[in-house]
Amino acid sequence: MSIRDEIHAQIEGALKDAKFPIKTPDELLAAMPQGAATRCKAGDCELTAADAGKVLKETDFPFKSAKEVADVIVERAGL
């Protein structure tokens, strides 16, 4: 599994119990198990929810699924 795929899967896993749609960045952070401190790590790559939030735009919301969140984050983070 590539680093990109592993991080993607970890983001989806972190949001498995989230209630969608998620309408705001604050709702997204609240849905993460450890809030902004939630970490995804694969190989030498580490990404926190706070880091991920820096690549999201207001126009990305609302998110309809964990997969959609993961797709946007890994694409924008350049993974």
Rank of each mutant, 00 (worst) to 15 (best):
A30R: 08
R39V: 08
T59N: 11
A77L: 06
A49I: 05
E75M: 04
A18T: 13
A66M: 11
E75L: 06
C45F: 15
A66W: 01
G13A: 09
R76M: 04
K16M: 15
R39E: 15
E27C: 05
G78H: 13
F20D: 03
V74M: 12
K67F: 06
T48H: 08
M32Y: 06
V72W: 01
K67D: 15
V69C: 02
P25D: 14
I11Y: 00
P62H: 14
K19E: 10
D60R: 04
G43D: 13
K54P: 03
L15H: 08
E46F: 00
A31W: 00
L47I: 15
L15Y: 14
K16W: 11
V72G: 00
D26Y: 11
S65A: 10
P33T: 01
T38D: 10
T48K: 03
T38Q: 10
D44F: 14
A9F: 07
C45H: 09
F61R: 09
A66Q: 10
I73Q: 05
M32R: 05
D60Y: 07
R4Y: 08
E58T: 15
A18E: 05
L15G: 03
V55Y: 12
Q34S: 07
G43H: 12
D17H: 15
S65H: 14
G43I: 10
A42P: 07
D17T: 15
A66F: 03
Q34H: 08
A31K: 00
L56D: 00
L28M: 14
I3R: 09
A9H: 10
A42C: 11
T48Q: 03
Q34D: 09
I22V: 12
P62R: 13
A30C: 02
G13Y: 04
E12V: 15
D17E: 08
A31R: 00
I7W: 05
I22G: 02
G35K: 07
D17I: 10
E27G: 14
E68C: 02
D5Y: 11
K41W: 02
M32N: 10
K19S: 14
E58W: 08
I73C: 06
M32E: 08
A77D: 01
A66D: 07
K19L: 11
V72H: 00
Q10R: 00
A77I: 02
G43M: 10
